[in-house]
Write a protein that binds this DNA or RNA. Structure first.
Lengths: 247, 247
DNA sequence: TGACCGGCATGATCACGATCAAGGAGGAGT
DNA sequence: ACTCCTCCTTGATCGTGATCATGCCGGTCA
């Protein structure tokens, strides 16, 4: 009974059921059977959409939930001691936010919406207990974390070995690929983050980002106008991203 | 019966039981009750010690197990496409190796022993099913992965914002801390990795590592002779690692 | 005992990208 | 319309750390 009520109230607000979510093939419940998905659905909490610049959670606040991005995008920023901020991640729809907070039971960074963004909140203790009875869910959770580890290693390689050109090229090629996987055009998209964000993320000064983007443009790799991006030669771009000679 | 036999044979080779392992308070089974630890013990596989330079597993080979370091140390190296190697991690006793292989079902890097090293092999499918009935084990697994994520983010910050001096200072302060946690002296230890490994890991040229180590020495921060390290002023070292002005 | 080789140190030069300094473009509010 | 402010671009200079080059030390093998 109470369940039905909750379900009804939920659908009055927004449709949040995984079964009708266009992301379900990418998101956590991707391997679940219909009846299992219902169980999973039941633990998900509704959140009002975040407006641009609003924070999902703050660094060092107690870890309670992980969040699946439903639409929009976010950035994670870590402030350490004296130093300035470090932007450690951008999150797109279907990605899981907050997994790095499990260990210390608090979030290691502040997560902020880059545009109007909706997320599904998944209380971690309930996710954990549900993962006991749903092996597919558990597997998916392990895999999500493992994938993030792999991506981090790739990022380290980018930061320690790649030139500014290679970093930018990797960034755009990566974005393109992520959009493609989500069913959007891999060639035309709008950046939700500023040049400063990109620079911070890639370990480059804003000026460098600007300059190189200009150069890519004059080389016919991309057409950039403000935050609107058209990738003109994806192959050449990936080649720049991976080129041996480094420079 | 067969269990007893296995147990007996195992103790004839080497003692691998978690209950008598000095690392048990740091390692995966840290939260388990005695009887649960027995179950965990039962799935662990014996491995002959690796000699210096021997590989635990190769990049792209199928993922089957994670490994807990029992003694010694290892490095993980990833070779991507055309580019040169990137050393992504050093592993010390009690740490878990191979977690980043879960998602793609193959190891994303080659792991090599830096000295004579023993590891406990933990077949992942068995670990996964055991984690179904042992919530503490599951929690610990989630936490291990989460911690690695957090460490990775810290590494990204190091690579994208810190100067060469800060990187080396962080590296030594970090090693010191890891040794301390394991009950070894945080002030005197032997590096199992070469200068080249350190440079590769920190995104620096070997020459730079050498030079800065020399400078630290002349500043009275450390005393280094070959791979033997004495930390003379840990406080100053951590201060260098975190200093605001960057340079 | 000598040659050889890998790991390490140190010196000289160079280049990539940071930093400093202006200025332009676009949006929001009045 | 105007100002104000943020975001972005472009130019000039400078510094950190890479690169090139050389040599030393300590092991190992003939």
């Amino acid at each position: 009974m109470p369940d039905t009520l909750t379900g009804r109230r939920r659908s009055l607000l927004h449709e949040t059921r995984c079964q009708t979510c266009s992301l379900s093939s990418l998101c956590l419940p991707l391997a679940l059977e219909v009846q299992d998905m219902d169980q999973f659905d039941a633990i998900i909490r509704r959140r009002a959409p975040l407006k641009k610049g609003e924070t999902l959670f703050r660094q060092d606040s107690p870890f309670t939930s992980v969040f699946a991005v439903r639409s929009g995008s976010l950035k994670q920023v870590t402030t350490e001691g004296s130093g300035e901020d470090q932007l450690t991640n951008f999150y797109l729809p279907s990605e899981l936010v907050g997994l790095d907070g499990i260990d210390e039971a608090r979030y290691p960074g502040t997560v902020v919406a880059l545009e109007t963004t909706t997320v599904c909140e998944i209380p971690f203790d309930r996710l954990d207990s549900l993962s006991e009875s749903l092996p597919e869910l558990r597997t998916q959770l392990y895999r999500s974390m493992s994938k993030e580890l792999r991506d981090d290693r790739r990022m380290m390689r980018l930061l320690s070995r790649k030139t500014a050109d290679q970093r930018l090229a990797s960034f755009f090629a990566g974005l393109s690929d992520r959009f493609r996987r989500r069913g959007y055009s891999p060639y035309s998209f709008r950046l939700s983050m500023s040049r400063a964000d990109i620079g911070n993320y890639l370990g480059l000064a804003v000026e460098t980002v600007s300059r190189i983007l200009g150069r890519f443009q004059s080389q016919g790799l991309v057409a950039v106008s403000g935050r609107e991006v058209h990738i003109l030669d994806l192959e050449a771009l990936t080649q720049v991203a991976e080129e041996e000679g480094a420079k």
